[in-house]
């Protein structure tokens, strides 16, 4: 059974090396002998039912984000939400994460509605939150942490229906106030951690792959990989994050 990844707006939403996450998913499937396909889906294209096992979307610049927001609502939002309810996995980062919530409220102008995967809303903030982040997370794998880099001014607040991806021990996270970082709903993960999250958080990468396989009807556990280098990079990044704050 092969896994099919849907890369949403690969041309427009790829601002901080986000495609490294897709590279990580693809390699970690192939290294285990799991066939995998990546399909990019751009403006005005529709999400075919039952076609995708993992959705991915990165962050973009403001102008791109507005275009994508309208297109998501018009052409893809309902279908993506339905696929996630049926077991598809998703990883959405930064701008992608915001658009998967209820809405984004800028300083001036109208609210940008989201596609309601996460019970979360975002408001424009005064200050950019920039820097290394470490969060304690149940999806972090061996060390129970996820590590990455954040760069956002939007402040996201979670409602009751969505759990955070983790609690920050270094950095700002969702809003710099309540220590939460990211959101999880079923197999969908939203986060502000870009910095190509998955290569050095293999536990999170494998959570998504496992979900994707389950969606294909395969429930066996994943073959372990030699992740010595991944975990070393993980630990060094955590140490660097603690040092730079």
């Amino acid at each position: 059974m092969d896994i099919r990844i849907c890369y949403l707006y690969p041309e427009m939403m790829n601002i901080y090396g986000d495609r490294g996450n897709v590279t990580a998913l693809v390699r970690r499937c192939r290294w285990r002998g799991i066939p995998v396909d990546v399909e990019g889906l751009g403006l005005s294209e529709k999400v075919k039912p039952d076609r995708y096992d993992i959705f991915f979307m990165g962050g973009g610049q403001d102008r791109e984000q507005v275009l994508v927001c309208h297109d998501l609502l018009e052409n893809k939002g309902d279908a993506i939400r339905r696929e996630i309810e049926r077991g598809a996995a998703a990883l959405v980062i930064c701008g992608g994460y915001q658009l998967f919530g209820k809405y984004y409220r800028p300083f001036d102008g109208e609210k940008l509605p989201g596609i309601n995967v996460f019970d979360a809303y975002t408001v424009a903030g005064e200050n950019r939150m920039i820097g290394n982040v470490v969060a304690k997370s149940a999806l972090g794998g061996r060390f129970g942490t996820v590590v990455g880099f954040e760069n956002h001014s939007g402040k996201t607040y979670l409602g009751k229906e969505s759990a955070p991806l983790g609690m920050v021990t270094v950095g700002s996270g969702n809003n710099g106030e309540d220590r939460t970082e990211g959101a999880v709903h079923l197999g969908a993960v939203g986060t502000y951690l870009h910095g190509s999250l998955l290569p050095k958080n293999p536990g999170l990468a494998d959570f998504l792959i496992e979900r994707g396989l389950a969606r294909r009807g395969e429930r066996s556990s994943l073959k372990p990989l030699d992740d010595t280098l991944e975990w070393r990079a993980h630990r060094e990044a955590v140490a660097r994050a603690r040092k730079t704050h």
Partner: peptide
């Protein structure tokens, strides 16, 4: 390196 003059964020290597 990820000093200020290099840019703190190294994710660009994935691009």
């Amino acid at each position: 390196n990820d000093n200020i003059a290099d840019g703190r964020d190294v994710s660009w290597i994935w691009d």
